[in-house]
């Protein structure tokens, strides 16, 4: 860095901003790499089915896909709300039928 630059520069260094943005983006993209492309849709449809019986939030379902050398695992995690909620929703669903 030159002497003149030293006096001139009060703005932040853009290279470090670039690096930070890249690190976040690349980590995100690597996570979704080599995973089946149907995952988001699967999650969406599962959500619809579950909501027929239980009232759950959008983020209550997580679908994880993992891959070892010899097997692929699809892990489904649903966080159910407290019992009160569930019963009401189930009753409503029952009434609807």
């Amino acid at each position: 860095m030159s002497l003149l630059d030293y006096f001139r520069s009060s703005k932040s260094k853009t290279a470090s901003v670039a690096k930070e943005r890249l690190q976040i983006l690349v980590a995100h993209e690597r996570y979704y790499r080599n995973k089946p492309s149907y995952l988001p849709q699967l999650q969406e449809e599962l959500m619809q089915v579950i909501r027929k019986y239980v009232e759950v939030d959008q983020d209550a379902i997580s679908v994880k896909f993992e891959q070892d050398d010899n097997q692929e695992t699809l892990e489904l995690n649903i966080v159910l709300p407290d019992a009160q909620h569930t019963r009401n929703a189930a009753t409503e669903a029952g009434n609807a039928l």
Partner: peptide, 16 residues
């Protein structure tokens, strides 16, 4: 430009 902080350095790129 790397020295003055306006270009990603070799180390930055390699870290990624």
């Amino acid at each position: 430009r790397v020295e003055s902080g306006e270009m990603l350095s070799l180390e930055d790129v390699q870290e990624i």
